[in-house]
């Protein structure tokens, strides 16, 4: 397999309008970041889906492991006092 057939994979993130987060939409292959952005425009924004594009080399992304899901997030599960609904407020008190 030659180099030209093996362009790196880029993960594509699109911001749909000002004020919103960039959101993952998929991936594509391109020789470099600039061409990845141009390709992402053609592949993922043909109907005004975005105003800003991020491209990230797929191999630069590290991810948590699904098997650890339970224990990994466990430490916050018993901390109900982090939620506003934990607190009791006298009836009739407003704006809290």
């Amino acid at each position: 397999m030659s180099e030209k057939d093996n362009w790196p994979l880029w993960e594509i993130f699109i911001q749909s309008k000002p004020g919103l987060n960039h959101k993952h939409v998929g991936s594509l292959h391109a020789p470099d970041a600039e061409m990845a952005i141009e390709n992402a425009r053609d592949v993922y924004t043909r109907r005004s889906e975005g105003i800003s594009i991020w491209v990230v080399p797929a191999n630069a992304i590290s991810a948590s492991s699904p098997e650890d899901e339970g224990s990994f997030y466990e430490p916050s599960n018993d901390k109900v006092y982090r939620h506003p609904t934990f607190y009791e407020i006298p009836d009739g008190v407003k704006y809290l």
Binding site: L9, G26, H29, V43
Partner: peptide, 25 residues
């Protein structure tokens, strides 16, 4: 525009297949 969309659809799908470990080439 329709034919260009079909190319795009092919690319979304190849990209989905690659998440399963398939090699694009």
């Amino acid at each position: 525009a329709k034919v260009q969309d079909e190319a795009g659809h092919g690319l979304y799908l190849y990209s989905a297949a690659e998440t399963l470990g398939a090699d694009r080439q």
